[in-house]
Computed example of a mutant assay.
Amino acid sequence: MMQQSENIIKIVLSILFLLCLVNMPYGFYQIVRFLGFVGFGILAYQSNQKEKQTEMFVYIALAILFQPFFKIYLGRTIWNVVDVVVAVGLLLSVLTNKKEK
């Protein structure tokens, strides 16, 4: 059950990050930052519960990067690259987790 919720969070976040490549209203990006923060926080907690420390630290770093409280200004081009890399990484982790079962 936990694995399924993890995969849903990863897929939803991936879709949201890829939608950031399209020209959207500024409010959309704020929502994505908040959802990314919450989603990566949940993923970090679940990784900690499974004693996967490396994954936990990666998710904490991503939660900090996407957190909406103290914005990190990287410029649109760099944020687009970050969004794609993170989305692809999340989707690959879903695919590799399915193969491990």
Results as ranks from 00 to 15, higher is better:
Met1Phe: 09
Gln3Gly: 12
Ser5Trp: 11
Ile8Cys: 06
Ile8Leu: 13
Ile9Glu: 08
Lys10His: 04
Lys10Pro: 07
Lys10Asp: 00
Lys10Ala: 01
Ile11Val: 15
Ile11Leu: 08
Val12Tyr: 00
Val12Ser: 04
Val12Gln: 01
Leu13Asn: 01
Leu13Phe: 03
Leu13Gln: 03
Leu13Ile: 11
Ser14Met: 05
Ser14Gln: 07
Ile15His: 02
Ile15Gly: 04
Ile15Met: 10
Ile15Cys: 08
Phe17Ile: 02
Phe17Gly: 01
Phe17His: 04
Leu18Ile: 12
Leu19Phe: 08
Leu19Gly: 04
Leu19Asp: 07
Leu19Val: 09
Cys20Met: 11
Val22Tyr: 09
Asn23Gln: 14
Met24Asn: 11
Met24Glu: 07
Met24Phe: 11
Gly27Cys: 09
Gly27Glu: 12
Phe28Gly: 06
Tyr29Gly: 04
Tyr29Pro: 11
Gln30Ala: 15
Ile31Asp: 12
Val32Lys: 02
Val32Ser: 03
Phe34Trp: 07
Phe34Val: 11
Phe34Ile: 09
Leu35Gln: 09
Leu35Phe: 07
Gly36Thr: 05
Phe37Met: 09
Phe37Asn: 00
Phe37Tyr: 02
Val38Trp: 03
Gly39Asn: 05
Gly39Ile: 00
Gly39Ser: 04
Phe40Cys: 08
Ile42Cys: 06
Ile42Met: 07
Leu43Thr: 01
Leu43Ala: 02
Ala44Tyr: 00
Tyr45His: 09
Gln46Trp: 10
Ser47Lys: 03
Ser47Ala: 14
Asn48Cys: 08
Gln49Phe: 04
Gln49Asp: 10
Glu51His: 13
Glu51Lys: 14
Thr54Pro: 03
Thr54Ala: 09
Glu55Tyr: 03
Met56Ala: 13
Phe57Gln: 11
Ile60Pro: 01
Ile60Cys: 02
Ala61Pro: 07
Ala63Gln: 06
Ala63Ile: 01
Ile64Gly: 13
Leu65Val: 11
Leu65Glu: 01
Leu65Ser: 04
Phe66Met: 11
Phe66Cys: 03
Phe66Tyr: 14
Gln67Phe: 01
Phe70Met: 10
Lys71His: 15
Lys71Phe: 12
Lys71Pro: 13
Ile72Gly: 06
Tyr73Thr: 13
Tyr73Lys: 14
Tyr73Gln: 15
Tyr73Met: 14
Tyr73Ser: 12
Tyr73Arg: 12
Gly75Asn: 09
Gly75Phe: 06
Ile78Asn: 06
Ile78Asp: 08
Ile78Gly: 07
Trp79Arg: 07
Trp79Thr: 11
Asn80Trp: 11
Asn80Lys: 12
Val81Met: 12
Val81Asn: 09
Val81Ile: 15
Asp83Arg: 08
Asp83Lys: 02
Val85His: 04
Val86Lys: 00
Val86Gly: 00
Ala87Lys: 01
Ala87Gln: 06
Ala87Tyr: 05
Ala87Ile: 07
Val88Glu: 06
Val88Thr: 06
Val88Ala: 04
Val88Arg: 04
Gly89Ser: 04
Gly89Gln: 00
Gly89Asn: 00
Leu90Gln: 02
Leu91Gly: 04
Leu91Cys: 12
Leu92Trp: 10
Leu92Glu: 13
Leu92Tyr: 14
Leu92Met: 15
Ser93Met: 10
Val94His: 05
Thr96Ala: 05
Thr96Val: 14
Asn97Glu: 14
Asn97Lys: 14
Lys99Trp: 12
Lys99Thr: 13
Lys99Gly: 12
Lys99Leu: 15
Lys101Ser: 14
Lys101Thr: 13
